[in-house]
C-alpha cells in the first residue's frame, strides 16, 4: 500500500503533473542555462537537491511554523539548501559555477520549490514530502535537459561540448541566444499538450 502511494507521488511529479509542461511553473530562471547541456544537468541536479531538501525540512517543521510566517520560513529553508549547493559547486565545478552565475541563487525564488512546500510539504509527513520534492524537480529537470539538448545541437552543432554535426552544418545562433529558449519551450508545450489532448479524447 505504502509502496503504491510512493510510486503514485513519483509518477505524478515526473509525468502526469509535470511542473513545466502541465502546470507551467518555475520556468523563470532556469531556462536561461539551457543553451549548454552540461550546465543544464548541473542545474537540474541542484534543483532536485534544493527541492527535496526544502520539502523535507518544511514538512519536518510544519507543526512548529506559525502559519503567518510560513512563506518566510520556506524561503529561508530553500536559501539554506541553495547555499550548500553553491559552496559545493564552487569547490568542485568552479567553471560551471562561474557560467551559471546568479542562476544558482535564483533557485530560491523558483516557484516550484515554494509551490511544492505550500501544496504538499505543509500537510504531509517528511519522507513522502522528500519524494514529492525530488520527483517534481526531476520532472522539471528532464524537460530542461530535453530543451538544452535541442538548443545545443541546433545552436552549436554539439552535444555535451562534443561536436556531432559536421562542417556542413550552419549553426542556428538564434538557438543559443535568448529567443531560442522561448521558441523551443513553446514548441515543446505545443507537442506535449497536443499528445495529451489526443490521449484524453481516446
Amino acid at each position: 500500500m505504502a509502496q503504491a502511494k510512493t510510486k503514485d507521488i513519483m509518477l505524478d511529479g515526473i509525468f502526469r503533473n509535470n511542473p513545466i509542461l502541465i502546470q507551467v511553473l518555475g520556468i523563470c530562471s532556469t531556462l536561461a542555462v539551457t543553451n549548454v547541456l552540461k550546465n543544464t544537468v548541473v542545474m537540474g541536479v541542484a534543483m532536485i537537491f534544493v527541492c527535496a531538501f526544502s520539502n523535507f525540512f518544511v514538512s519536518l517543521l510544519r507543526k512548529l511554523i506559525p502559519s503567518r510566517i510560513r512563506m518566510m520560513m520556506e524561503i529561508l529553508i530553500a536559501a539554506t539548501g541553495v547555499i550548500l549547493v553553491d559552496i559545493v559547486l564552487k569547490a568542485h565545478l568552479p567553471d560551471v559555477s562561474r557560467q551559471l552565475g546568479p542562476y544558482v541563487g535564483l533557485i530560491i525564488t523558483n516557484c516550484i520549490v515554494m509551490g511544492r512546500c505550500e501544496a504538499f510539504a505543509l500537510s504531509n509527513p517528511p519522507v513522502a514530502s522528500l519524494i514529492d520534492g525530488a520527483s517534481n524537480a526531476t520532472g522539471y529537470a528532464l524537460v530542461l535537459v530535453v530543451i538544452a539538448f535541442i538548443r545545443e545541437l541546433l545552436g552549436s552543432g554539439s552535444v555535451w561540448g562534443v561536436k556531432i554535426l559536421g562542417a556542413w552544418w550552419d549553426n542556428w545562433s538564434i538557438m543559443v541566444m535568448a529567443p531560442g529558449g522561448f521558441f523551443v519551450l513553446a514548441i515543446l508545450l505545443w507537442v506535449v499538450k497536443g499528445l495529451y489532448s489526443r490521449e484524453a479524447e481516446k
Binding site: 511553473l25 518555475g26 520556468i27 523563470c28 530562471s29 532556469t30 531556462l31 536561461a32 535564483l106 516557484c111 535568448a178 529558449g181
Partner: peptide, 9 residues
C-alpha cells in the same frame, strides 16, 4: 526578462 528570463512566472 527577454535576455535573462528573470521574472517569467
Amino acid at each position: 526578462l527577454l535576455t535573462y528570463y528573470l521574472g517569467m512566472c
